[in-house]
Amino acid sequence: MITFLSAIGHSAIATLTKTGRGALFLKQTLTCTPSVLCQPRLISKQLFSVGVLTILIITISGLFVGMVLGLQGYYILSDFGAEETLGVMIAASLVRELGPVVSALLFAGRAGSSLTAEIGLMKATEQLSGMEMMAVDPIQRIVCPRFLAGCFSMPLLAAIFSMVGILGGQLVGVSLLGVDEGAFWSQMQSSIDFYDDILNGVIKSVVFGFVVTWIALFEGYDAIPTSEGVSRATTRTVVYSSFAILGMDFILTALMFGDI
């Protein structure tokens, strides 16, 4: 019994210590932000590897999600003779929920895992120590540009996801199943509100981008510097990021749209 309690205590202490380290890491990263913003060359390189290279998976996934929404929406709405509202349904689901959430999950899998592995391997091969000994702060040179690139990329990726998704829905709903094109677009335009729908979706994607990039970079920086340690850290990035995205989505949705 004592052993069991002691194990719980140890794991609680370890979790709290790690959370503290994570918070300190974020503080150090944010402190470096102003100086890194003055060196756009550092950020642009990372924007390419974190953002641009993720566009393909986001586009293809967005297209298919939109097409499936078009199909499912049409079958259900046509039962009530309301297939003209298909555009509203697709746009609202994508802009409010699926755009930010699914693109953040894909971002965690594609860019988050690669950030963790990159930083973890730099730690394992003593590149971070080497920079410190050259009087170069690795948080400023390595971590902060990647963090900013993640925060900038995520809302843009979510926007691309939603846009391509709507086009996918239009392809299936209008071109394939024969929903009236005028009704599809005009109902969408009149029902989707810039502040309530689009802006809230953008806020969500900014929050997800911040959290996922933070988790990915911290897991890499905090990884045990062995091949197994880096492999575990990469797995943790994807698992923790997914939990964080889904949990925070509920909280944000409740705050933005609900009466809770």
Binding site: T125, Q127, G130, M131, M133, M134, A135
Partner: peptide, 27 residues
């Protein structure tokens, strides 16, 4: 103070995304 110290790591600790010239030019 570290600018006045050099350290040779066991693994070399070269930055893998830079070539030899840029590694030496880095500091």
């Amino acid at each position: 103070l570290r600018k006045k110290m050099g350290m040779l790591f066991q693994s070399g600790a070269l930055l893998t995304d830079l070539n030899v010239f840029d590694n030496v030019a880095y500091p």
